[in-house]
Design a protein around this nucleic acid. Sequence first.
RNA 1: GCCCCCAUCGUCUAGUGGACUAGGACGCAGCCCUUUCAAGGCUACGACCGGGGUUCGAAUCCCCGUGGGGGCACCA
Length: 492
Amino acid sequence: MKPARTRMAPSPTGRFHLGSARTALFDYLLARKTGGQFILRLEDTDQKRFVPGSEEEIMQSLDWLGITPDESPVHGGPYGPYRQTERREIYHRHARILVEKGYAYPCFCTPERLEKSRQQQQAQKVDRVKYDGLCRAIPPDLAAKRIVSGEKHVIRFKMPQDGVTTARDHLRGDIVTENKHLDDYVLLKSDGLPTYHLAAMVDDHEMQITHVLRGSEWLSTFPLHVNIVRAFGWDEPVWIHLSVFLKPSGKGKMSKRESAQAIKDGYSIFITDMKDLGYTPEGVLNWIALMGWGVPEDDVMTLEQMIERFNIDSLTPSPAAINFQKLDHFNGTHIRLMTNEDLSARLKPYFVAAGLNVRDETLLKVTPLIRERLVTLDDCLAFARFFFEEVVKPNPEDLVANGLDAKQSAMIARKSYEILSGLSDIAHAVVEPPMRAYVDASGYTAGQVFGILRVAVTGQKVSPPLFESMEIIGREKVLSRLRYAIELLDGM
RNA sequence: GCCCCCAUCGUCUAGUGGACUAGGACGCAGCCCUUUCAAGGCUACGACCGGGGUUCGAAUCCCCGUGGGGGCACCA
């Protein structure tokens, strides 16, 4: 396959979410797979809807995911500028070409007249409200004069009024639309900026985009777009319309309300939230890759493996419901795939953020003990904070073993203390045999004896393996925590 | 209202006319392992939206319904 040039073209009007991330991922995979380039282009032609900070969020999200573009407003590239507001002249030039070739025309109708026309049509209950074509009839030389005189106008595409337009989507095949259902869409707005329809087609051509991956919301204007491209006489890219993401219930698409609910549940659809929630780029990437892509082999993939296996033919056209449990699964799986050093380094910030004093040497020993217990990175706090705390304060009730009372539990704790303090070394291999021997001799269960010890030493009922943990905590701390636990039990 | 798209287990999907007793993954249930919680292993449950065609034969092709989604802007 020839090197593909793909592009992700978000508008800086809101937050960067799952859907955008998936499009970017597929763009990236296709470019990497074929040895081509992945381009980021900012579609900022609607200054009314511009949201400050959203450009930064887009870049940050892409960087964090590890799918950085080859060409972009910040990285530059041979086809720039990559911000549409900086490309006005290019669009004007192309709009002029279309007008000259008779594929477009200036329209002087005011918003008020348009609104009136719309209302009339609605009153007549027409099937499709559209531009009434008043300015289509203005002779070109007269229109030119009005433009020169400074009259405000837009440029509209002259849509064929009969016949059909056949547009080919790579996933859906030919989509045939009767032209009478289409409209004379505005190409150039009266503020001098292009609409998406003109800008995207011009830029995709100028930037030599070979494959356009975009959301299925563009399907309805797809015929317009191919008409524009054909009017210019350009080669068409391969068009791929990706389906939308549905809310977890599968009933309806993701909405503002739904994304708020996700956040309440401890999840998010926004990429820049993922890090704080303890998700890894690997987990998120793997998760979104599988929505809309039928991978026949192993579901678990690294970015490299995705590149190897990627193929636009195995993309799917149907909408996919978001499943956060699956995100958890992939996140945990990728955590378990990491090297000890890598995982430790990624865990550290969460301990530091919690105000704990973390020694790298200790963390390196702790990590193997908790890795298969982690679903998200920040779970490390729940499992391992006691390693880095001076003292632990167990809930006294938790110190009482199942089926026993405080007195019996205190007795077991004392006996354990006796055994442990009699040993000069607290290494796992040294401690376990005598403790097991005690369990066997005492008539209590391992669960009871070790349970008391666990709560005493870690302060929690659920913890990493006990003996390995004690070894890391160290003899002195283990013994002092045990003494404290005995005090608590005696005081009950 | 009109136009367009989509339709396999609860969810993500494999399947491109016979290899389908419809495969995998998540979740769910059980068992094994086990000092807690996990991880891991094994097993179970679980689907071709409905109706018509085409064909010797349909999850696969066609039509009609139904359901879901998108669009009908000087927004993208």
